[in-house]
Amino acid sequence: MKGLLDLDLVFVTGKGGVGKTTVAAALAQLAGRRGNRVLVCEMDRSDALTTQLEADPVGFTPREVTPGVFAMTMDTEASLREYLKLQLRVPIVGKIGGLARALDFVATAAPGVRDILAIGKLCYEVRERHYDVVIVDAPASGHVVGLLSAPQAINELVKVGPIRDQTDWMVEILRDPGRTGAVIVTTPEEMPVEETLELAGRLSRETVVPLSAVVVNRVLPELFGTREEAVFEWLLAPDRVAKISESVGGDVSLLFAGARLAVDLRRTRAEHLERLQAGLDRSVPVLLVPYLFARSEGLRATNQLATFLEEELGT
């Protein structure tokens, strides 16, 4: 398998709240730094991605937001218009005034319609090679499987005709481990790890998209090794705490309580990390990025994350 940054199409997913968008933005920055022409696509209209890149909101038409990085927001109606215009040369496109309403209506009945239009647009950009790499800030765990399996779902429903031909080439792109990959972002906490393992299973069972990497975000630094930990316990004796407090001119007991909490948090998280690694296929690289204390959002945090990812990728 090729490296993450050699792929043409990368879906970044994970449980809500783990920093999926920041990782997608960081991967885009990293690819951009290396001189690639990058398309990064936000799948909902929250503008979270452009916020992470410190850029104004974008629409369906991509705009260069940082050097080499073009951002867009998925819009299924616009995607349908483009598709009808480019792929089928349907003559009445200009006349379909009620397209938005009709699409809304059909999508209410069959939500997969939106999924296929979204994934179709992404695959189209890959096929036409408008960019070196397309990075998708994909929906969270529960929804990404629906998105990635939409072409097969349509294949099951529609047996013949141009739609069928359309989905076939999409599946070809999506299943190629040299071109397409999913990245699951997680944190070393119980539920995110559980959901990551569950999602990894569902991706391999229900979609053709290969899992390229798991990014573990917000890994806490290790405070003490075994010897340091023994010293820490030794320091906790009341007379020593009192003595230290006296020397520094302030009560240090809460500083010690804080360190205790940090050690406990780190320990629980280390256990989850082990569980994650044990539950994943060994061929899937697990990239660790540290908890950023100083900044949690914006371009600064995104760039820092990009640097950590670069180190982890070791390329």
Binding site: E228, V231, G258, A259
Partner: peptide, 17 residues
Amino acid sequence: DLTERVLREIADSFLNF
């Protein structure tokens, strides 16, 4: 030496949080 390292870590960790 070890104690110094531990104390620095405690202080650092606190300042981070």
